[in-house]
Structures are given as structure tokens and as C-alpha cells.
Computed example of a mutant assay.
Amino acid sequence: MKKKNTDWGDLLFRSMNAAVLGLLALLTCFPFYYVLIVSLTDPAEFLQKRWVLWPDQWSLDSYRYLLSAKAFVRSIGNSAFLAVVGTACSLTVTSALAYALSRRRMRGRRQVQLMVLLTILFSPGMIPAYMLVRQLGLLNSMGSIIIPTLANGWSVLLMKAFFDSLPSELDESASIDGSNELRTWLSIILPLSLPALAAFGLFYAVGYWNQFFSALLYINDAKKWPIQVLLQNMLLSASNTELDANDVSTQPPPSEMLKMAAIIIATVPIVIVYPFLQKHFAKGAMVGSIKG
């Protein structure tokens, strides 16, 4: 009898747990669903109802208008450039520095590692960072976003821990075969580090794609704005003037629909990239946590 009551109690708990988690999932997903539905609604129907959960007529007018506006397409290109070039540069610098710190025969290794650790514990602040970017002549350039964030101290230390977990015999055998440090890093270490590179690459790519504050601080030229800055200006504006309506020849949809479509376009690239890195991501996310 006791076992039967226990079974019923366990079933009740599981049912309530599933119901609560399902409700939370619906509440979390509903804003994304609503944004997508509004962006795909016919403009005339949206102006008539203003609140649409399932449109009677579907339309891609908002997407056509956005993709025909030079300012919007240009901002997408700027964000893509940051995500691709910035991620490649950051992965190169991070992995190279982490590999150097993992070599025990490197002179001054502890001092350099302490300097990397200090960047995690202490931040220079916004004003010194702006002064540095200005002194380097990087204002109003993509370099103002990429160069100051080339390497993240936390990522360097985690990747160093991953390199520490690799068998030291790899370096020894490569050295016996006449390989130098650069060739060992490129030909042996990096191919074995794909899970770590995929994980950190995804983190860097998302960070560069979502660059907002740095771009707002360092870039004054609207033609060099990434998508997030343009989207912020669109969301704050009551109209679609940020898109430079002279660039398009069609009648613009309501500004609310354009904002929803812009949010979808800004989100989709990262959603598309993630499945290709998923097989490496779970393993790479644990990088450095277990040393065997």
C-alpha cells in the first residue's frame, strides 16, 4: 500500500513538474512567436487588427522592404564582417597565447599568465578604453571593435587548461621529428582542439554579431553601424526614417512590422550557425574542467 501511494505521489509530482515547466516554456517562447507572426502578417490586416496571433493573410512585404533598403543591408554586411573576421582573429590570438602559456619551457610564462589573470580581475573602464582607441587612431573603424576585444582573459585561461590536458608526448614526438613550435601548433594542436575552437568560436561570433555598446561608442559614421545599432535606432524611432526611405521604391509597411522583421533577421544568422557547431559544442563547453 505504501508503494502504491509512493507511485501516485511520484506521478503527481512529475505531472505538476511537466505542467509548470511547459507553461514556463510557452511564456518564454511566446514573444519570439509573436515577433515572427507580426513580421509575416499582411500590412493591411495588421493595421486593421493591431493584435495578430495567426494572420489570415501572410506577407513578406516587411522583409522585402528591409532587404531593399541599402542602410539595412549595409548594416547586415558590417555585422557579418565583424562576426567572421573578428571571430577568426580572436580564435587565432586566443589559441596562440593559450598554447604559448601551456608550454612550460616558455620564459616568463608565469608573469604573462599573471597579466592575463589581472585583465579578468580588473577592468580599465570605459574612459581609458576610449582614450586608448582614440590614441591608436581606430575611431570610426571596424578595428575599434575587433582589436580591443581580440583576446578574452577567461577564454585564454580555459583554452590553456585544454592544451595542458593534451599528452605532452605529442610535443616531444613532434620535436624529435624536427617540427618547430609554430608547425606543432598548426599541424598537431589545433586539429586536436576542434571542440574547444568550436565552443569559443561560437561565443566570439555571438559577441561580435551582437556588438552594440562598443559600436555606439567608437563609430559615428552611420554607414559603418552594425545591425544592432541600426536596430536600436529603429526601435527608438516612431517611424522607419533610420532606413533611409529614399533607397527603396516600395510603400513601407507599418514601422512596428519593420521592427519585428528586423529583429528576426538579426537573430536568424546565429540560430542557423549553432546546429553546425552543436556536435562540438557540448564537449567544448567543458574545456579545461577535467584534466586527464
Rank of each mutant, 00 (worst) to 15 (best):
residue 239 S to C: 00
residue 259 K to P: 07
residue 172 E to R: 11
residue 257 M to A: 11
residue 232 Q to N: 04
residue 292 G to M: 04
residue 178 G to K: 06
residue 70 K to Y: 11
residue 9 G to I: 13
residue 148 P to D: 08
residue 122 F to K: 00
residue 247 D to I: 13
residue 217 L to I: 01
residue 234 M to H: 06
residue 236 L to Q: 11
residue 156 V to P: 03
residue 131 M to R: 12
residue 32 F to T: 08
residue 52 V to H: 02
residue 212 F to S: 00
residue 224 K to F: 00
residue 112 V to P: 01
residue 19 A to I: 15
residue 58 W to A: 14
residue 115 M to P: 01
residue 9 G to C: 09
residue 46 F to R: 03
residue 239 S to Q: 04
residue 93 V to R: 01
residue 94 T to H: 06
residue 18 A to S: 13
residue 15 S to N: 08
residue 184 T to A: 01
residue 185 W to Q: 04
residue 219 I to W: 01
residue 228 Q to C: 00
residue 228 Q to V: 00
residue 235 L to S: 08
residue 187 S to F: 00
residue 3 K to G: 07
residue 235 L to P: 02
residue 134 R to V: 01
residue 234 M to R: 06
residue 159 M to S: 00
residue 181 E to M: 05
residue 169 E to F: 07
residue 262 A to V: 13
residue 92 T to I: 03
residue 147 I to F: 05
residue 119 T to R: 12
residue 218 Y to W: 04
residue 64 R to H: 14
residue 139 L to M: 10
residue 168 S to M: 09
residue 88 A to L: 15
residue 8 W to L: 15
residue 283 K to E: 14
residue 54 W to P: 00
residue 158 L to E: 07
residue 14 R to C: 13
residue 129 A to I: 09
residue 289 S to V: 13
residue 43 P to A: 08
residue 139 L to E: 08
residue 263 I to P: 12
residue 141 S to I: 05
residue 132 L to T: 11
residue 194 L to R: 11
residue 58 W to N: 02
residue 13 F to S: 14
residue 11 L to G: 05
residue 183 R to Q: 09
residue 25 A to I: 13
residue 248 V to W: 08
residue 72 F to K: 07
residue 53 L to V: 11
residue 6 T to H: 06
residue 83 A to G: 09
residue 214 S to A: 11
residue 33 Y to R: 00
residue 20 V to C: 14
residue 47 L to D: 09
residue 245 A to F: 04
residue 280 H to Y: 15
residue 70 K to H: 12
residue 129 A to H: 04
residue 86 G to W: 04
residue 201 G to A: 04
residue 84 V to Y: 03
residue 138 L to W: 13
